[in-house]
Design a protein around this nucleic acid. Structure first.
Length: 222
DNA sequence: CGCCTGATGCCCT
DNA sequence: GGGCATCAGGCGC
């Protein structure tokens, strides 16, 4: 009964060990965890309801064609190759940030993309950061929405999610029903059913709606 | 509700 | 230069 980490209580040391495992195993266990960011404007906390696992690069034991690390280390993805518990935040589509928590042992590039959650603290501040959101459940119902609500940018990449101004608390009980399926928006084989590495709490209203990767090859008539 | 599109800049080949 | 681990708004049913 109760916590699946009996003596852990989310203490940073134990959390680091917990995150050192296989991201695909950690993913369903971390659902329900609460990530907090204390900014100058105040704290915002999100209860995680949806994550995606991303595994190692081409040469690793678990190659992942959908991962930013597939082509090997670069300046951008460097935090993914570091120790667990740190943030990997990237900028995409010219306007959005998305945040991951690095998993696996130091040197193995895996991470959990934080895809959705429920704001459980600092709702007012989250709403200021997300003016387009019209409903509580949509404040962090998507990876860029979640990063925005928490005030995360690339300035936070490589920072420790288990130390001030951040904190991460595991759920005291496992999520009742966890579903899994293909990852959202991942083109190519990495987005296929061969990689069912998206995990979410079933029937949670804050989970983002599934969208397959949209073909981006623009058809230009000659 | 579902489908479609434009926005907009960094990354990597 | 092509593509992107997205979002919001518009239109149609």
């Amino acid at each position: 009964m109760g916590s699946f980490m009996d003596n852990g209580s989310g203490h940073p040391h134990d959390m680091r060990s917990f995150l050192q495992g296989d991201a695909r195993v950690i993913a369903p266990l971390i659902l329900g965890a609460v990530l907090t960011h204390h900014s100058d404007a105040g704290p915002v906390s999100v209860r995680l309801t949806e994550v995606e696992a991303y595994m190692g690069p081409r040469d690793s034991e678990h190659p992942d064609p959908g991962s930013h690390t597939f082509g090997g280390p670069t300046a951008r993805n460097a935090p993914m190759f570091g120790p667990p518990g740190f943030l990997y935040v990237y900028f995409t589509y010219g306007m959005h940030y998305c945040a991951n928590i690095v998993c696996g042992p130091d040197g193995f590039a895996s991470a959990l993309l934080l895809r959705a959650g429920e704001i459980v603290e600092g709702e007012e501040l989250a709403a200021v950061r997300r003016p387009a959101s019209k409903a509580h459940k949509d404040l962090a119902s998507g990876p860029a929405r979640l990063a925005s609500a928490l005030g995360l940018t690339t300035a936070d990449t490589g920072r420790d999610a288990l130390a001030s101004p951040f904190s991460l608390w595991l759920p005291t009980t496992l999520a009742a029903a966890v579903a899994s399926g293909p990852r959202v928006g991942v083109a190519g084989p990495g987005g296929s059913t061969e990689y069912p590495w998206r995990f979410w709490i079933e029937d949670d209203p804050t989970v983002s709606r599934y969208k397959a990767a949209r073909p981006r090859n623009r058809v230009v008539s000659p």
